Amino acid sequence: MTLSSPLLLVVGLLVTAALAWAAVVSGRRRRAALAAAGVAAPGGRRARLGVGLTLSGVAVLAVATAGPTAMVPVPRTAGTVILAVDVSNSMGAQDVAPNRLAAAQRAARAFVAAQPDSVDIGVVAFERGALTTARPDADHSVALAAINRLKLSGGTSLGAAIMASLTAITGRQVALGREDAPPPDIGYWPSATIVILSDGQNQGPDVERAAMVAQRAGIQIHTVGVGTVAGATVKVDGFHLRTALDEETLTLIAKTTGGTYQPASDAARLDGIADTIDLRLTVSDEPLPLAGGLIGLALALLTVGAALTVLRSGRVI
């Protein structure tokens, strides 16, 4: 237990001690006066009990005024979602208005807005490489700011997107290593989910191996296809390149991990992904103010103590 104003506790206890001393002196004087008058002092058990309860109430009130706070374990449900957004140059195609990246950002913002604060959300931006632009956090404004900052650049590596997302989830660097090496074991993270928003135009290797790492860790990957199968032409460094939505690769990633694939035209269905997140039960210490309860106890003690004292002696002390 901690106190916000320890000095008030010291003052309150001194006041309580002074009242106790006054009660003892008053009792002695009363008994002496009765003895001098030749009157036997009545049994004072009830009166002493009343005085004791009254002083106890004052002592409890002194503790309450000091602002006591206790740290208590509070259970809460929590999960982690990583939004991996494709920022490769192909996402500048305008087959989805106003362009693919803007559509992905709109869908990502809508998804964030639908999540409770018990879900930590992080953002990974990927092209040939991948970068965590917002670590998982219950403050969703951080994720929204990261989504709004996304800019077009480079090619596309879905494998890098998955590995960077796993790094953000576990808090440590996750790498595939050589192709002949077994996939890394990153532990079991069933309360984590990855949502990839991309046109699926992958230029990097190891997509399936990366998905297998997530699958072994119990992490579902949901993919959202941004673009059209018919495709569009995008201008990159003075060249006109044809780009189309690769649903096959995005579907493979989702199926490997037990997730789902859906096109951006159904982006509203992103809200349903929240239902698949396996929220974990965590326990964290949170401050609990005790002053209110102590004040109630003090008032009860003071009331009962005063009533007993008055009924026995006709005086409060």
Score class of each variant (00 low, 15 high):
168 A>Y: 01
152 L>H: 08
272 G>S: 11
303 T>D: 02
92 G>C: 06
244 A>G: 01
245 L>N: 09
67 G>I: 04
270 L>C: 08
5 S>N: 15
57 G>F: 08
250 L>R: 10
190 P>E: 07
230 A>K: 15
146 A>Y: 09
89 N>G: 03
25 V>Q: 09
93 A>C: 05
6 P>S: 09
212 M>R: 15
126 F>V: 06
254 A>K: 02
70 A>N: 09
213 V>Q: 06
273 I>H: 04
295 I>R: 08
11 V>G: 02
16 T>N: 03
194 I>S: 01
279 L>I: 02
242 R>L: 13
316 V>M: 10
213 V>G: 02
190 P>Y: 09
191 S>E: 15
209 R>C: 06
116 P>Q: 02
129 G>W: 06
55 L>E: 04
60 V>H: 05
196 I>H: 03
282 T>G: 00
226 V>K: 07
298 A>I: 04
182 P>L: 11
43 G>E: 13
298 A>L: 01
229 V>K: 11
289 P>C: 02
38 G>S: 08
316 V>H: 03
212 M>W: 01
59 A>D: 04
3 L>A: 08
20 A>H: 02
110 A>C: 00
111 F>Y: 14
83 L>Q: 04
54 T>I: 00
203 Q>C: 01
133 T>Y: 11
214 A>T: 11
232 A>G: 05
5 S>G: 00
94 Q>E: 14
255 K>G: 06
54 T>R: 15
255 K>C: 00
74 V>P: 01
75 P>F: 05
28 R>P: 03
6 P>E: 07
